[in-house]
Amino acid sequence: MVALAAFSVILAILGSSIALVLAGRWVAARADLPATAPERVPFSGGLPPEVHAWNRFHARYYVMALLFLTFDMEMVYMFPWAVVFRSEGTVAIGEIFVFISILALGILYAWRERSLGWS
């Protein structure tokens, strides 16, 4: 249960930071004057706001996001590999070279297809 005690420290730090900031905000908000209607207009560089910002938005890097989704998964396998690497020796080094080159092929393909830029 030693590890769980360490995690309880992390959880307490996370929780108390959030609680402190929210409490400070609540206290400060009691002295705030309510914002008037012109103050509440979102700033849009001088242009009149005509639509809600919450609209359909074409994020043009979505292909890169898909690449990230799969590439990120590789880390799941690589952290345990790093832990046992020295005890396993040359087998481990061969395996990781194969693994990394497989994934590097993916990046190479994405780069070749020019799908890393905005589309």
Binding site: P42, F43, S44, G45, A53, F57, A59, M64, A65, F68
Partner: peptide
């Protein structure tokens, strides 16, 4: 995203692109 204002929203979308790229 939360302010419902265009410029912060664009910043948020830029950050997702940046965070996804530089996390690796």
């Amino acid at each position: 995203w939360s302010p419902n204002s265009i410029l912060p929203l664009i910043g948020a979308f830029r950050f997702i692109a940046q965070a996804l790229s530089y996390e690796m």
